[in-house]
């Protein structure tokens, strides 16, 4: 076991990990940040997505040790400072961009990463960007709509109320 330290959601944290401990396991089991979900074992589903040093990563594909010294943002760090929902989170709620909620943290993290580099994405860009995040409930319609809405674009012309 090795002691590692990093910043998670703005707080300095440390813990004991094995060489094989994944960042996802460190967040969930060591830090109790259970909003990062495990939906597959092949780095396909994106439910475990977090930001590591500003980059969108699948935390099931990062060794905790490799994240040592880094800055991690997980879904628990995405609300506004006053605890209210961020623009992205609020858009997902307003447009019913989630159902069972399991893929949702990864979707929110992926959306935040996209809008940081592409503040006004097209529909096609949103769909392409979310290719690494699987949702089984929504058929993606309301997720894509929520992402476009979160970017400040008018989504009233998109079918459905």
């Amino acid at each position: 076991m090795t002691k590692i330290s990093m910043t998670v959601n703005g707080k300095a944290v440390s813990g004991e990990v094995e060489g094989r401990t994944l960042l996802s396991a460190f967040l969930r089991e060591e830090l109790g940040l259970r909003g990062t979900h495990i939906g597959c074992d092949t780095s396909q589903c994106g439910a475990c997505a977090v930001h590591l040093d500003g980059q969108l990563v699948k935390s099931c594909t990062v060794l905790a040790m490799d994240a040592a010294g880094g800055a991690v943002t997980s879904i628990e760090g995405m609300q506004n400072a006053d605890g209210s929902l961020s623009v992205i989170q609020a858009a997902f709620q307003e447009h019913h961009g989630l159902q069972c909620g399991f893929c949702t943290p990864g979707m929110v993290m992926a959306t935040a990463a996209l809008l940081k580099v592409n503040p006004k994405p097209t529909e096609a860009e949103v769909r392409h960007h979310l290719e690494g995040n699987i949702c089984r409930c929504t058929g993606y319609h309301n997720i894509v709509k929520a992402v476009l809405a979160a970017s400040g674009q008018d989504v009233s012309a998109i079918a459905a109320e």
């Binding site: 940040l33 997902f92 709620q93 019913h96 949702t104 943290p105």
Partner: peptide, 22 residues
């Protein structure tokens, strides 16, 4: 078309699924 109240916990990482229970 009320927005869903349960969304708030899911959107903030506070949903509690079986795997989250220890």
């Amino acid at each position: 078309s009320t927005v869903r109240r349960e969304d708030v916990r899911f959107l903030t990482g506070k949903g509690r699924y079986t795997a989250d229970i220890n």
